[in-house]
């Protein structure tokens, strides 16, 4: 299958031998550089009394993210997990929106990037559960120990068997979460890129110069889907954390 490459990769690969993941790495690095420059530029003229437009906009976004996390998690968890969830959203949003710039491809079109993001989310979700209840308490939560708490002592082997059964089921559920997160983000980006690409190929060209951009509405839709998928990834990460830290 033909793989889509960015302009930078194509230009560089004429002079160097690049591995196939270099494309993704270059794009993600550029996204991080862009984000760092924006934030550094906004915080360079930081002022409380007369904030610049950029600073006000960024503060608006950050407070919106904070409010969103506070609505879904309890207070002390929200303060702890807001940096992770907020940076997850901003990072995925910028990665997705990179595809609007001509010659760039979104790094989330690569399955490796989304799997990495989903694995980080998985580790954070498990850690949040263990942080809230302790490791033993989290194992009890996973194996639904409350169901067997009041059974008589001579039924203990059956209780352990039942707890093991529930534990295995919950473990499979926990392992399915990062998989579905990764494949959802990858599939949306990949499908949209394929759609835009096929409409680029469809658009007619007159006199070798004038082209009618058939793909234009799909690029707009791509922007919307990119925002929506970043939002959904964040919402699901927050909901998973809130499930793991829930107390019966």
């Amino acid at each position: 299958m033909e793989k889509e490459h960015s302009l930078i990769y194509i230009l560089l690969s004429k002079y160097f031998h690049l591995p196939s993941w270099a494309d993704t790495a270059i794009m993600a690095g550029l996204a991080i550089l862009l984000l760092s420059f924006i934030v550094a530029f906004a915080s360079r003229r930081f002022s409380i009394l007369s904030p610049s437009r950029l600073q006000s906009g960024i503060e608006l976004g950050v407070s919106a993210l904070e409010n969103f996390v506070r609505e879904n998690l309890r207070k002390e968890d929200a303060d702890f997990f807001t940096p992770f969830i907020g940076s997850l959203f901003i990072y995925i949003l910028i990665l997705n929106l990179l595809s609007v710039i001509p010659g760039f491809i979104p790094p989330t079109m690569d399955l490796n990037v989304t799997i990495a993001l989903a694995l980080v989310t998985f580790v954070v979700v498990q850690y949040s559960g263990a942080r809230r209840k302790g490791i033993l308490g989290y194992i009890k939560h996973i194996s639904e120990w409350e169901l067997f708490a009041h059974t008589p002592i001579y039924l203990l082997p059956f209780c352990l068997l039942g707890a093991l059964f529930f534990g295995i089921i919950h473990l499979i559920g926990e392992l399915a979460k990062p998989f579905s997160l990764a494949v959802r983000l990858f599939a949306n980006m990949y499908g949209e890129e394929t759609m835009v690409l096929s409409f680029v190929a469809l658009s007619p060209v007159f006199f070798r110069f004038f082209a009618i951009p058939f793909q234009f509405p799909f690029v707009l839709f791509h922007m919307f889907i990119g925002f929506l998928q970043a939002y959904i990834f964040t919402v699901l990460a927050t909901i998973y954390i809130s499930i793991a830290t829930k107390e019966e």
Partner: peptide, 16 residues
């Protein structure tokens, strides 16, 4: 919108 996107991602699983 969240629900629609979740439903739509099922189609995209098949696409993948």
């Amino acid at each position: 919108i969240i629900g629609l996107a979740l439903i739509e991602s099922l189609v995209l699983y098949v696409l993948v």
